[in-house]
Amino acid sequence: MQFMLMFSEGQAQFDMRNDPSHAPGYWGAWNAYIGAMTQAGIIVNGDGLQGPHTAVTVRLRDGVRHVQDGPFADTKEQLGGYFVIEVADLDAALEWAARSPSASYGSVEVRPVLPPPSGGGV
């Protein structure tokens, strides 16, 4: 089964990414985690994302374009990256989610990927 793991982090963690005293620890933990997933052969795809200040949000309402700087919702934690993994079941997906660095300081949302429509389509 495929699951998407969505990693959310607080501003403090986004700030660590470029802070010389914290960056090695921050990236070291992520590289080790991604390395372990790679070694287990479960990664379908995934990426880290640049910080929420780089986000632009687009909405179309009644034919009018609304374009906004910043993420879609102003919350304490923001999406920092995602991976789609192939594992046996939800419990296995949760196990991987718990191992991620952001589980201990942010949060990880785990969702099954919608399977492709089965045969019989147009």
């Binding site: 070291g28 590289n31 080790a32 985690y33 390395g35 372990a36 997933m37 070694q39 191992r99 201990s104």
Partner: peptide, 11 residues
């Protein structure tokens, strides 16, 4: 060790 770090759940 890197693999062990990547697999731990505990900060």
């Amino acid at each position: 060790l890197v693999s062990a770090i990547g697999l731990t759940e505990e900060p």
